[in-house]
Nucleic acid binder design. Structure first.
Lengths: 299, 299
DNA sequence: ATTTTGTTTTTTATCTACAATAAACATTTT
DNA sequence: AAAATGTTTATTGTAGATAAAAAACAAAAT
């Protein structure tokens, strides 16, 4: 098989769950735009909905006959894109305890284990290499550099340079910019989480990511944005694996964020710089503490 | 054909030209190490040299019978790696005048034009995407973002952050580090070029690249190193295309480099910072002036 | 005992083919 | 005439196959 129709299946599920009996559906281009797919895929969805008796479809008339049940949806294994499957599978291997730095990565073996072709694995590895966790020797294998202390320090250094820059840019945004409203909303979210910290401290990592993303967007710099994407993915898996969601540490981070937000809102560049530095310093400590204790770089 | 034996051919040429009649050649592993290829490839080279009557080969005995002529070598079209061919071809298209920002990039068309398969082109584009000049819409085409003013400004911003960091790190290197000797040698090269500036100003871009690479290596940060790789490639093609090798501008840059080197050697962090900033400021101007005058980003 | 050569196996780099998806074109409906 | 639907074409995403290159293993030579 050349390609799985995961785009179709995933979009079908997404559209099906939102259907309400007796409502009429909009035009094909509109559905396609809503779902973020091409009209071809949108039509495939309508065709299937029609075949399943969920809608009655005749040209412009598209009436929802019945609410789709869980039974109508495609199982989640079939809706994940191959890229996501490979990413998950690979990250698990990388973060597993037996993945020692210096280890070789074998494309064919990876592909077989994931149950996919080598081309997709290769392309994933090429894309993934920008995160600095693996490295290729030309005409030869990939090497796992690993989530080591060196990696964490290099990452933290760049992160600090970028965030200080972005925070300063944020402080210079005109007051009518949407970002200020977003920041205010985020301040409230922080307060809400703090009020119920014992229950919700585990949700912090998601809020943290959104907060820093908001700051970084102010820089309007593609290299900074790309780097933050990389950080976000690496951290996402790293913290998922290392369940070091210490309540105390997160509470402290929330307070730092609130100070940081206050500094941004003050517009005082010196205050912004200080608050940003303070938070980045403790974020660095958190990162270093979350490392597997033994790992050290091997040449 | 699955794969061209360009590694073999390129290494064969490299080895053949260095042969001297009546000398004995070292062991297979040694030859392989010298050429940076596997022993399998080294043996293929020896086999061919033997077949062509250039050497007499019997187990450990490898005697050079005659000097290879140009006729014995593989033509240069056959020794370029596919990756290099694609890179050159693509950069020429990107930097050509008719390549407007926002343009779509078609994998199949590119592959046909270069005379290669789509897989290689795809992989090249994925790798190339980290330079921020192209962008992919999932399940759809690549878009050329182009060498625009925005690109140049974003690049310059990151470059400045990184170089200020690296320069500071350089200043902290222990005095017995090899980099100090390299820096001194580079100072002399700058003086030599300055003495003969009218003849040699065109060679400056190579020296410039080596100089900044030396600084960046001090940071020992993989993200900074990778970014500088990207800059180097982009600039390499950009300046090759835009022959704006103004004598005056280069002379000024050499003076700035010399000030910068003096500051580094002084070890005074404030002086380093100032000299670095001064040079980066004018480097930014140079970059902006070298842009095609009309190009502006399109969404 | 180590290094070198001879031989075999493994792995990567690349091409080709094809289904899914997007995009373009043509026809119909409002 | 503008927008929607119907139909066709182009392009991407992925699997599978194969030669080149690397790596591993085995035998021979110093």
């Amino acid at each position: 098989m050349a390609r799985q129709n995961t785009v179709f299946k995933e979009a079908y599920n997404r559209y099906a769950v939102a259907l309400r009996t007796d409502t009429a559906l909009p035009s094909e281009p509109e559905i396609a735009a809503q779902l973020g797919v091409s009209r071809s895929t949108a039509r495939a969805i309508l065709t299937r909905l029609s075949e399943e008796g969920i809608i009655r479809w005749n040209k412009r008339q598209k009436i929802v006959l019945r609410q789709p049940t869980d039974h109508d949806l495609f199982p989640s294994e079939e809706t994940d894109s191959l890229h996501d499957i490979i990413e998950r599978s690979f990250m698990q291997r990388i973060l597993a305890d037996d993945a020692a730095p210096g280890m070789q990565i074998n494309e064919l073996e990876l592909a077989r284990e994931i149950g996919t072709g080598t081309t997709s694995v290769r392309e994933f590895l090429i894309r993934f290499s920008r995160f600095g966790l693996i490295e290729k020797r030309p005409n030869s294998h990939w090497t796992l550099k690993g989530f080591t202390r060196e990696f964490a320090l290099e990452l933290a250094d760049v992160r600090e340079m970028f965030e200080l820059h972005s925070a300063a840019e944020f402080g210079r945004l005109p007051r009518d910019n949407q970002s200020w409203a977003d920041l205010a909303a985020m301040r409230d979210e922080h307060h809400a989480m703090l009020a119920d910290i014992n229950q919700r401290f585990k949700d912090f990592s998601v809020l943290d990511e959104r907060f820093h993303l908001l700051i970084h967007r102010a820089s309007k710099n593609r290299f900074i944005a790309d780097f933050y994407d990389a950080i976000a993915i690496v951290f996402h898996y790293h913290y998922q694996w290392n369940k070091t969601a210490a309540r105390q540490r997160n509470e402290r981070a929330i307070h730092e964020h609130l100070d940081y937000i206050a500094a941004l809102e003050s517009g005082d560049q010196a205050a912004i710089d200080a608050a940003c530095r303070a938070h980045l310093h403790s974020a660095r400590q958190t990162l270093l503490q979350s490392l597997p204790q033994i790992a050290t770089e091997t040449a």
